[in-house]
Design a protein around this nucleic acid. Structure first.
Lengths: 338, 338
DNA sequence: CCGGTATGTGAACACGTGTGCACAACTTGT
DNA sequence: ACAAGTTGTGCACACGTGTTCACATACCGG
């Protein structure tokens, strides 16, 4: 005997018509009861709201969006892996700020968000799409443009016309790190970078190289640690084995720097900062922990998020505004590893 | 001269009718072209898809949800502060799993999500609401029930009928910690807990107390650190000042344990684990870092998330199924601080 | 008592989609 | 050549709203 209802239809959600029927008024009245400032007799409004509360009615936000001329208040956030702390801290604040502004963040995150999923979320009439960290295929960018969905990018330069972005002045930040190392008397300096396909990595590496050249120094080694703690561990291990003379290490983000610090002071028995300086990048919360006291380059999180929010508001206000690129000024934060 | 358009209306999004007009077919045909398995001549379908691609058309997901008898695929996630790492790691995996299942996570996060926002998101015809960590007002629970929106709760026991939850067997976990301390010869044991209004804290404290009593020991002190690293720092500082005889410390989560570890080995010059054992709870990624090697009680993240996903799928499949409470078995993870 | 205005209210539409239904066109069998 | 069956397509509806428009009612001045 086959089941008649293999897939249960969603039970009927209470609708404005139900409330109208129950309260003995027209459906328009129900809609007006939930619209502040609409013409409706006070007594009637209260009666309707009471009946609605009893029935547990709430206006269907989807239908409202579909009907209304306004915006959907949906904002997609595409973020990189949350395991690097920096992106996680950004996401946390971003979500809070968006909610506070009445937006609903739809989050796609992880090491590598499948392109199909990013494309699929474009099916919603998004107010905007925020891309933080990880890269985004050109096809997505094109579709956003065609669908008139504003894109706010952070942590990656996208030279597409009409796309706002906020990004750290990474080259300058790397230069600050090199400068601090040199002033400390370091001469055997190495670089530990992230994924080569990210613009932040390219900028930090370029800034490092040109600052080194300006100081008349050649880097002892250039290696990569995938922007992750574990990557920092492994890369630093082989780095210090192959080049024990290294006395200064600049890491392209804090997560790797913490891994480097652990290997250097642990396995390799190096004294930090006495015989080895380690400088990170970002200034995540962990860097401030007394266990680490990581010297780093601040990539201001509050400032970055508030600039993203400002760009978003501006773009929603005047869709035709010219694209804006906000550069966050990095800052050297001396602590205990330098 | 007043501006005529203070608020720019959203520019017209390309619609199925536009595609139909452009391609010289009916709107139904366009809809069918995007519906796999629908009756439509192959040539016609290809032509429509081509025109649609040129115009940058995508079916409006909102309209589809409104029309369809099915589900919205929207899932709200209400999570506590992301600064405690554990919730952050859970959220990260949860988001990825939901996306993989074709759901769209709408995230409300932060220390204290305003009740109004949680209520507001119920305006959407959510497939489900996932509550992770932080507490949720009864009003929200009631409305979810009335709106027939399934609720999956984790990290907090909610004795509401019809609400599925997955939660660590915290009492047992605390007992494991006490047992490990006692076996190590510790007798002057203190407890560092989280916010008193969270059920996880109540369970861990209760488990700690009863295990201590069973071992014939009285706790040296019971204090709180708000589940945060900074709280762990401060509480441990005053704890060790007031009770220098303490030789064992059980912390209700890893973040506090790491703070305690920093203060104990840093400022207070205590030797861990020689003269002081510290045990945490959760086994976050940081606990595994060689810099820490935190001995802890594993509150399995993968298992927790996959159980939440299982409960969600089950609930969507059979809305009338009886509520299920999944208990995750904790596990003692010996490392270097014990 | 009448005209004019302020105030409420219900019917109707639009938003963009998926699909049932009736019908047209085309193929096949005898 | 005609009936029967197959395949493709357009019309119309429903989803649940917010809002316009016309209309009904109450009030007020003269």
């Amino acid at each position: 005997m086959a089941q008649d209802t293999p897939v249960q239809p969603r039970p009927h959600r209470v609708t404005a018509a139900d409330v109208a029927h129950q309260a003995g008024v027209s459906r328009s009245a129900v809609s007006r009861a939930f619209t502040p400032g609409a013409y409706l007799h006070q007594d009637k409004r209260e009666h309707i709201l009471k009946v609605a509360a009893e029935l547990g009615y709430r206006p269907n936000a989807l239908a409202a969006v579909l009907q209304g001329k306004g915006r959907s208040h949906l904002v997609a956030i595409v973020t990189g892996s949350l395991e690097n702390f920096y992106d996680s801290e950004i996401l946390s604040r971003l979500v809070q700020q968006l909610i506070a502004q009445g937006k609903w963040p739809v989050v796609l995150g992880g090491d590598d968000v499948p392109e199909a999923d990013v494309m699929a979320v474009l099916g919603f009439p998004l107010d905007a799409m925020i891309v933080r960290g990880g890269s985004v295929p050109d096809e997505v960018v094109d579709h956003c443009a065609k669908l008139q969905i504003p894109m706010i990018v952070s942590g990656r330069i996208l030279d597409h016309p009409g796309i706002d972005s906020v990004c750290c002045e990474s080259e300058q930040g790397a230069a600050l790190a090199v400068q601090a190392l040199v002033e400390k008397g370091r001469r055997r300096i190495a670089y530990l970078g992230g994924q080569a396909d990210l613009s932040s990595e390219r900028e930090r590496r370029a800034g490092f190289l040109s600052a080194m050249a300006a100081a008349g120094l050649a880097p002892v080694a250039l290696t990569t640690g995938n922007y992750s703690y574990d990557g920092g561990l492994e890369s630093t291990r082989s780095l210090l084995e192959q080049h024990p003379e290294i006395d200064g290490l600049f890491c392209a983000n804090d997560a790797m720097a913490l891994g480097a610090l652990a290997v250097a002071t642990g396995e390799m028995k190096r004294r930090v900062p006495e015989t080895l300086s380690i400088i990170g990048f970002d200034d995540i919360a962990l860097a401030r922990w007394p266990s680490f006291g990581l010297t780093t380059i601040r990539n201001d999180i509050e400032e970055t998020v508030s600039q993203m929010m400002r760009l978003l508001a501006r773009r929603l206000d005047t869709p035709s505004a010219p694209a804006e690129l906000v550069r966050i000024r990095p800052e050297f934060v001396p602590r205990l590893t330098h």
